[in-house]
Simulated scan of single mutants.
Amino acid sequence: MKIAVAEINIGALLYNVEVVRKLAPTSKILAMIKANAYGHGYLEVAESLTNVDAFGVARLDEAIKLRDAGVKKSIVLLEGFFDKDELMIIAEKQLETVLHNKQQVIDFINADLPQPIKVWLKLDTGMHRIGLAPEEMASCYNQLTQHKNILATPTILTHLACADELEHPLNNQQINLFNQLCLDIEGERSIANSAAIMSLPETHLDWVRPGIMMYGASAMADSDAAEHDLKPVMTLKSSVIAVRDVPKGGSVGYGATWVAKQNTKIAVVAIGYGDGYPRNAGNGTPVLINSIEYPLVGRVSMDMITVDLGQSTEIKVGDEVILWGEGLPIERVARHANSIAYELLCGVTGRVTKQYKN
C-alpha cells in the first residue's frame, strides 16, 4: 500500500525540456531548479538534466548544496548576494550571480575577489519587483564592463509580469523597453520564462528560463499542460485506507461542511495538508481512484481526505489514489483549490516519499 508518494518521472522531465528546445531552438536553457526543483528534488533533477546549459536557483544555500554534491554546470544565483561574505563564497564556488540593485553593483566592483565571476544584470522593465531602474542601466553596465571582477560581458535580463496573459498590454511595453535599453550594448540577453517561451517567441533571445513547464504544468492562464504537449513529471499518489457507509443526511469531516444527499459510500484516503495537499480544496475537487474520477467531499484534514464513491462501487482498502499527475492534470486541482500549480508542487512536504523512475 502506497501512502503519500510523489512519483517523479525523469523521462517526462527530459521530454519537457525537449519541448522547450523545439520552441526556442537557438536559445540556451537556464533551467529553474529553485525551491527544491519546484518540489521535485533539486539534486535528482540537476543530475538528470544533462540537456540544459545552466541551472537557476534563488538562494545561496541551494547553490552551495548543488556544488558540494558535485554539480559542474553553471549555477546562477537569481536573487544575487546580500553581503560581502556571500560574494566571496560565490567566487570560491565558481557560481554566477544576478545584480539587481545599485548597492549590489557597488559592492561587486569594490570587492577583492579571488577570481572573476560571471554576472547577470537584471532590469526592471515594468514588473516593479527587483531590477535596476531604466535610468540606472547605462551607468551600472559601464561600471561593470571590463572590470577585473567580471568574467566576460554581463548578460542582461528582465522578467515579464503578465506573460501568462497573451493579450496583456504590459507584455509589449516591457519587451519594447528592454530592447530599447539594450540597443547599444553588448552581451547576451534573456527575457523568457515558461509562459513567454510558450507564447511570445520574440522573447526567446540568447537564453530562456523554463520553470513550471519543465515540470509538466502549464504556465498559461486557463490551460492545461497537455494542450502544450507537456507531460506531468510528478504524480502524487496515496491509497484508500477505509471505505465507509454514510446515510442520507449524514455529514463528513470537520465542521460538517458536506452532508450526503442520499445513502452513499465514502473512501478515506491517506493524504492531507500535512503532506501538501491543499487544505482549501473544495467539495468536488477531482480525485482519481482506479482510473475513475470521484469528487472530494468534506474538509481536507492534516492526514486524510474523504471521497464520495456513490451508492455502488468496487473500491476497496489498498486501492491506489492519484491526487494529481498522470491522468489528472494538476491545473484542475489547483483551480478547485483557488491556487496555482506552482504552489501545489512546491508545497509537497518532506514526509511525502519521492520515488524516481525513467
Rank of each mutant, 00 (worst) to 15 (best):
D107L: 04
Q143N: 10
A217G: 07
S312K: 15
A163V: 03
G56F: 13
D61A: 13
I212D: 05
A54S: 01
L66Y: 06
T158D: 02
D68H: 13
D107Y: 01
S139L: 15
A111M: 06
Q146D: 15
R299T: 07
S74K: 10
N263K: 07
C182P: 04
A242Q: 06
I266D: 09
V321I: 00
D68K: 10
N110Q: 13
G310Q: 05
E44H: 00
A226M: 07
L160K: 06
D319V: 03
E320T: 08
S251A: 07
I340Y: 08
G276K: 05
S339A: 00
S218N: 12
V352I: 00
N171T: 01
L323C: 06
K72D: 04
P201A: 07
L66Q: 08
K28A: 11
Y42T: 02
Q143R: 10
I89Q: 09
P278W: 06
T313H: 05
L157D: 02
G131C: 02
A260K: 07
P201I: 02
V307R: 00
E47Y: 14
L344D: 05
I271H: 11
R299G: 14
T155D: 04
G41F: 02
F108D: 11
T153A: 09
H40V: 06
K2P: 03
K122R: 15
M198H: 05
L78F: 14
A163M: 08
F82E: 15
E47Q: 09
L181F: 14
A24T: 01
D68E: 15
I322M: 01
D61V: 12
K357H: 04
E92F: 14
L87W: 00
A196F: 08
D303M: 14
G56N: 02
D112N: 13
Q262H: 07
I185K: 14
V45W: 12
S223E: 08
W207C: 05
D164H: 13
P232M: 02
A226K: 07
N290Q: 10
G211E: 09
K265G: 06
L177S: 01
T158F: 12
Q104G: 10
I130V: 03
S312M: 12
G253C: 12
